Deep mutational scan, measured.
Amino acid sequence: GSPGIQSFLPPGWEMRIAPNGRPFFIDHNTKTTTWEDPRLK
């Protein structure tokens, strides 16, 4: 199987799917959430 997208996120980050189907990202380091992919910064 191919590695999940989770493995490509920075340490402490998690990806979830919102009720509307959009992915969002949780930064457990700062306890914040964002719509922006942290890998694109």
Rank of each mutant, 00 (worst) to 15 (best):
G1M: 12
S2W: 11
S2R: 13
S2H: 11
S2K: 12
P3M: 11
G4Y: 07
G4D: 14
G4V: 12
G4W: 05
I5L: 14
Q6Y: 03
Q6R: 02
F8V: 15
F8H: 15
L9G: 01
P10N: 02
P10L: 09
P10W: 05
P10R: 07
P11L: 10
P11Q: 09
W13V: 02
W13N: 00
E14G: 02
E14W: 01
M15A: 07
M15R: 05
M15S: 04
R16E: 07
R16V: 13
R16I: 12
I17R: 13
I17A: 05
I17H: 12
A18P: 05
A18N: 07
P19T: 12
P19N: 11
N20V: 02
N20W: 06
N20H: 06
N20C: 15
N20L: 02
F25W: 08
F25I: 00
I26N: 01
I26D: 00
H28C: 08
N29K: 10
N29M: 08
N29G: 07
N29A: 12
T30I: 02
K31M: 13
K31A: 14
K31Y: 08
K31S: 11
T32K: 09
T32D: 04
T32N: 07
T32R: 11
T32Q: 11
T32Y: 09
T32W: 09
T33C: 04
T33A: 14
T33M: 13
T33E: 09
T33N: 07
T33R: 11
T33W: 14
T34Y: 05
T34A: 03
T34F: 04
T34H: 08
W35M: 06
W35T: 06
W35I: 05
W35G: 02
E36S: 06
E36V: 08
E36F: 09
P38R: 01
P38L: 02
R39Y: 06
R39H: 06
R39C: 15
R39W: 13
R39F: 07
R39E: 03
R39N: 11
L40D: 15
L40Y: 13
